[in-house]
Simulated assay, not measured.
Amino acid sequence: MVERDPWLGRRPLHLRLRFLQGESTGSYVTRLAARNLRPVEQLLASVGVGPMPVEPQYTEMYVSRYARERLANLSGCSVAELSLRLVSLRDEFLMPDGSADDWEWPWDARAGFIVQACSLCAASRGTRAPAWLILPDPWHVCLRHGRWTDNSRSLQRPYIDLHDHPGVVRAQQCLNRLRKRLGYAVARWVEADALSVLTCVGYLEDPSRATEQEWAVLAARVGEQRARPVAQFDMVARLAWDMAWLEERRRAGRLSTAESRAWLRRVGRQRGFVFREPLTHWISGHRPLLHARQAGGSGTGGPSQTEVAGQGTAPLASLQNLTCLPWVRMPNEMDRLFL
Rank of each mutant, 00 (worst) to 15 (best):
N36L: 08
S27G: 04
P138T: 07
E224W: 09
D5Y: 05
W241M: 13
V201I: 11
Q232T: 13
E69V: 11
R128S: 14
R18P: 00
D150T: 01
A309M: 15
T300R: 10
A34Y: 11
R254W: 09
V267D: 09
S304W: 04
A219V: 04
Q294R: 14
I283Y: 11
H291S: 13
R11N: 13
R251C: 03
R238W: 11
A194S: 09
V274F: 07
S298F: 12
L120Q: 10
L15Y: 11
D335L: 08
Y203P: 00
R226G: 04
R226I: 10
L337E: 09
L155E: 12
W241N: 14
L89V: 07
D108H: 10
G50D: 05
N151E: 06
Q305H: 14
V236W: 04
R90K: 10
A80L: 15
R251W: 11
C174N: 14
W105N: 06
R4D: 06
G126N: 02
A100V: 14
M330E: 14
L15G: 02
A231R: 06
V236S: 12
A262R: 12
N176G: 06
A122W: 01
P136K: 01
T323G: 09
R261H: 13
C118L: 03
L94V: 01
R181C: 10
N73H: 12
R249E: 11
V54D: 00
R226L: 09
Q42Y: 08
R16M: 06
A67D: 07
S196R: 02
C77E: 14
L143A: 02
L82P: 07
S27T: 00
G50C: 01
V217C: 12
Q305C: 08
Q213D: 11
E55R: 07
L246H: 04
V190W: 09
P158T: 01
A210G: 14
W189S: 15
E104W: 03
Q116Y: 04
V49Q: 05
T199W: 08
L316Q: 00
Q270V: 15
L8W: 14
S27R: 00
E69M: 10
F275R: 06
R170Q: 13
S78Q: 10
P106W: 03
V49E: 13
D108W: 03
A240L: 02
T127A: 15
V29T: 07
D91F: 02
A123I: 01
V217W: 15
R170K: 15
D137Y: 00
E69A: 12
V328H: 10
Q42H: 02
G50K: 00
A219W: 01
V141C: 05
G301Y: 11
A109D: 03
R153Q: 10
P136R: 00
D91M: 02
